[in-house]
């Protein structure tokens, strides 16, 4: 039967081995991510947009790449779905945007800030996400 020292060996060797594999895959991932995410398109606007995104905790209601909270729409494809004008209007709105009654904080952004956020969302929409979000397979097309 397994002894305590064998059990410890299993823990130590397993942990070291899998940590090693994880670090190796991380290096490989970091090498591949720039191409997969079009890192060359991360302009100063996109970066400023990301900062605004974080400063206002947009992830506290929305998801991006499916990550965040589940109170407001997934925004990965928002640029493609809604277009620039709609997004700009809601970001600059001085009163809470409230589609079907669900309220968004009124950020009353300047045009510049809104454009930065739009640039960020547009960049996010072009990242290769391995098929996410999936096409709705049960969508009625009539």
């Amino acid at each position: 039967m397994l002894s305590k020292s064998q059990a410890r060996l299993f823990f130590v060797v397993g942990t070291i081995f899998f940590s090693g594999v994880f670090l190796w895959l991380t290096v490989d991932t970091l090498n591949k991510m720039p191409a997969q995410t079009n890192a060359q398109n991360i302009s100063p606007e996109v970066n400023r947009g990301k900062v605004i995104w974080e400063d206002n905790n947009c992830m506290g209601c929305h998801t991006l790449f499916g990550e965040g909270a589940y109170y407001a729409p997934e925004l990965t494809k928002a640029y493609e779905r809604r277009g620039e004008a709609y997004i700009r209007a809601l970001l600059m709105s001085p009163t809470p945007w409230s589609p079907q009654g669900r309220k968004m904080v009124a950020y009353a952004m300047t045009e510049q800030e809104a454009n930065d956020v739009i640039a960020f969302i547009k960049w996010a929409g072009e990242v290769d996400l391995n098929g996410f979000p999936a096409e709705p397979t049960l969508k009625q097309t009539n």
Binding site: L25, T29, K32, Q36, F65, L129, N130, F132
Partner: peptide, 11 residues
């Protein structure tokens, strides 16, 4: 890492 812009092998 499935759907955040990381390589497909993570699936």
């Amino acid at each position: 890492y499935y759907y955040i812009g990381a390589p497909k092998y993570w699936l």
